[in-house]
């Protein structure tokens, strides 16, 4: 298998597919302590003008981080991950997390990140720095 240190600019990262469920969102609320009712209570979320419950942004970001850690293995660490939440993610959306290497130095791979839903709307954009061991 190709080592992280041999990866080149413009190479794509393996895509991670994610379909959030109401059960997972509840589990994440419990694991994270973020019980904001916009994630858990459909009526509340509608009244807040969101049209129904939405997934935690941090749960989406965790999927992005998981895509990276799956790819990195133990050859490095995520030294930076910066994201912007661009669209709301709802239970049962199909989200594809993707990225590519934008630039690199000897020790650091700079990756562009993006996630899209099945309607081809970008739900997240961002960048990560992977520091190779």
């Amino acid at each position: 298998m190709k080592r992280l240190s041999d990866r080149q600019v413009s190479e794509r990262l393996p895509v991670r597919k994610w379909i959030p469920t109401p059960m997972q969102i509840r589990q994440y609320a419990e694991a994270s302590g973020d019980f904001n009712p916009i994630h858990l209570d459909d009526n509340y979320a509608r009244q807040a003008g969101l049209g129904g419950v939405i997934a935690h942004g941090m749960l989406l970001m965790a999927q992005m981080a998981a895509m990276l850690t799956d790819w990195i293995g133990d050859e490095g660490i995520i030294s930076k991950i910066d994201v912007r939440f661009e669209q709301m993610v709802r239970p049962r959306d199909t989200i594809l997390c993707s990225g590519f290497i934008r630039a690199r130095s000897e020790k650091v791979l700079v990756c562009d990140l993006a996630a899209f839903n099945e309607r081809d709307e970008r739900v997240l954009s961002g960048l990560a720095h992977i520091t190779v061991n």
Partner: peptide, 27 residues
Amino acid sequence: EEVRRFAEATGVPYNDRVPPTFVGTLL
């Protein structure tokens, strides 16, 4: 146990390396 619960909820493997976004739970 907190990291395990976080890993299970987010769908990532559990090991001694803390998932990067776990710091979002420091509330």
